[in-house]
Design a protein around this nucleic acid. Structure first.
Length: 570
RNA sequence: GUCCUCGUAGCUCAGCUGGAUAGAGCAUCUGCCUUCUAAGCAGAGGGUCGCAAGUUCGAAUCUUGCCGAGGACGCCA
């Protein structure tokens, strides 16, 4: 029920029937939308300009054909040609009333359509290393990924939410060392300070304590220590995710990728395609060249597929690099038959996109869409100052620190009030104190006010119908039509959010439509005829109820996508 | 040095992938609670869309070049 799309189709059909040389190639150039400025009507299109240029037909002729045909339809009240080639349409009240009836029949389904056509999408996000609980840095990606997944699965995609567990490598070695350190401290009743490469944080002490409770503990068995600490840290992470309202379908372990022989698999494929060689890489530029040694290593010709240099996949000591694991992991994902693989990464991983993409192409997955959404840094602001966090000092602010204070709803909503690739200032004070600066309340308040109206109607014992109202459409006034017009944008908002994988568009729309409602509500304060419940005109009251009911449904469905709750009273 | 992201009102940011007179919140100022929730509404001021060329009917949006901010460039993960 996207009236802008429908109108475009209508216009195209008219042109198709009237001009022999008309073809639909111009479709992507033709706009058909609600203009910002009301003076240009309800729907505006640049069709005349584009069509006349491409088809070499006189503008006036096209406009004549279009307007005369469109005006045969009772839904179009006015069709106007405006230089340099716009077609501006004004829709009749009857149209808006019928439209309202139609969408209220769709109810909760309104706005959602089968955009995905059962395409399979794997979306990987968070994937925080299992070396400690989630901190602020993970928050944005977690919520972004969760909401995007929900949005996609509500619009006809088959979505798998996946978490990649890096349970291998030096960080896990360090983790085990840290655990061992704590264990030794406990057993020997000592308090030796942590070493440089060890993980800070109290949580590892409690993990060590729990390990001691086991009937037989063996802290010289490094493998066992690794396994145990990874398991316990994952439990912490999962707890944080649950509290945030984020869930996953799949946890894929890096270790199992190795165990299942996938490294050998990709090695064979790359080798058979002549994409591997032993060679030297140039010294990295910019940064200080830490432990740099010019050595001969196994390289992957990623530069053949769009990367700016070739990459090491096996080090001189015979170990696979992290990138090699990642190739194997993406090989695994791609082999599972997805149409699209979405990765949500921190912006600092931007440089990684090309090489992963190159590896997918090299492995023969040319038809899989590979999408990376980057989430920019969140600046945590307290008392107007940015709080610097550093891994070295272990002063990361944890999700579990702020979540109980702020609450899931506010946190989730707030994290989506910016485009994913823009910096986000996360001001604790604003979330806690000045609630009027927090848009989630604004939207929830609109919902609650509509509930309140419904209660008031019940008390007055007004018989309100919210479907298929027969009504003289000429009684509709501009404020009501404007609300219906706002509702008509909902499908478009969902479509574009899906198309660009940008859930923040939903959030902005919710704020906008909540604002329109608040404004309408307040009209009744100064002008009695805009009071929603009218004793003398039950029909008009019914229509208003239908509008408000639809606004409430859209608010609810929108907030549902964000997993933010609604309240009937605030 | 190369690459990526960003630059829009005093501040924080949207801007429907090229549309007509660039929007919102905060802050500042002025109004609005005897009747459906004031966590709200109405109004005012505030702009050379970083700068400069180009593309065209039309540019905040696309191209190029500068300027500025942040990030990445590993044989770490």
């Amino acid at each position: 029920m996207n009236i802008y799309k429908d109108t475009k189709i209508l216009i195209f059909n008219i042109l198709y029937q009237n001009f022999n040389n008309f073809n639909k190639d111009i479709e992507s150039k033709v706009s058909c939308e609600q203009p910002k400025n009301e003076k240009f009507g309800d729907i505006s299109s640049n069709i005349i300009l584009i069509a006349s240029k491409v088809l070499k037909i006189d503008k006036k002729e096209i406009s004549k054909v279009l307007t005369s045909n469109l005006l045969k339809n009772k839904y179009f009240e006015k069709a106007e040609y405006v230089e340099p080639g716009f077609l501006n349409l004004i829709l009749s009240n009857e149209f808006w009333l019928d439209f309202l009836n139609k969408i209220s029949l769709q109810g909760d389904e309104y706005g959602f359509s089968n955009l995905g056509k059962n395409k399979k999408i794997n979306i990987e996000f968070v994937s925080a290393n299992p070396t400690g609980p989630l901190h602020i840095g993970h928050l944005r990606g977690a919520i972004f990924g969760d909401v995007l997944s929900k949005l996609l699965s509500k619009t006809g995609f088959i979505v798998t939410k996946e978490y990649y567990v890096n349970d291998l490598g030096t960080q896990i070695e360090n983790l085990a060392l840290t655990l061992k350190h704590h264990l030794q401290n406990y057993v020997n009743s000592e308090n030796n300070p942590l070493k440089e490469n060890m993980y800070k944080g109290e949580y590892l002490k409690s993990i060590a304590k729990k390990f001691l409770e086991k009937p037989s503990f063996e802290f010289n068995d490094t493998e066992k220590l690794k396994e145990y600490s990874v398991k316990k840290n994952l439990e912490l992470i999962k707890k944080d995710l649950t509290d945030l309202g984020v869930s996953f379908d799949n946890y894929v372990s890096e270790k199992s990728i190795h165990k299942n022989g996938l490294m050998e698999n990709i090695y064979e494929i790359l080798k058979n395609n002549d994409l591997l060689y032993h060679g030297f890489l140039e010294k990295p530029k910019g940064k200080e060249a830490f432990n740099w040694k010019p050595v001969k290593q196994l390289l992957f010709k990623s530069s053949l597929h769009g990367d700016k240099s070739d990459r090491v996949i096996k080090k001189a000591d015979g170990k696979w690099t992290y990138f090699a694991s990642d190739i194997a992991y993406h090989y695994d994902k791609a082999s599972r038959g997805y149409d699209e693989i979405i990765n949500i990464w921190g912006a600092d991983h931007a440089g990684y996109i090309h090489r992963v993409k190159a590896s997918l192409i090299a492995l023969g997955f040319k038809n899989i869409i590979f999408t990376v959404k980057l989430c920019q840094i969140v600046n945590l602001i307290d008392k107007q100052k940015v709080i610097k966090m550093s891994k070295r000092d272990g002063n990361f602010i944890l999700v579990s620190d702020i979540l109980p204070k702020i609450g899931k709803d506010v946190l989730r909503f707030f994290m989506l009030t910016r485009k994913n690739d823009a910096h986000l200032d996360f001001d604790l004070e604003k979330c806690l104190n000045e609630t009027n600066e927090n848009p989630s309340f604004y939207v929830q308040y609109a919902y609650a006010r509509i509930s309140s109206i419904k209660r008031a109607a019940l008390e007055k014992k007004q018989k309100i119908k919210i479907e298929n109202v027969k009504f003289d459409s000429s009684l509709l006034s501009i404020p009501e039509i404007n609300l219906i017009k706002s509702l008509s944008l909902w499908p478009k908002v969902i479509e574009s959010s899906v198309a660009y994988r940008e859930p923040h568009r939903i959030v902005y729309f919710l704020i906008e439509i909540a604002g329109k409602f608040h404004s309408y509500w307040s009209l009744g304060k100064s002008d009695k005829k805009y009071k929603i419940l009218l004793d003398e005109n039950l029909e008009l009251t019914n229509v208003r109820f239908m509008i408000l009911d639809m606004i409430q449904k859209v608010l609810k469905n929108g907030l549902d996508l964000l997993s933010v709750s609604v309240k009937d009273k605030m």
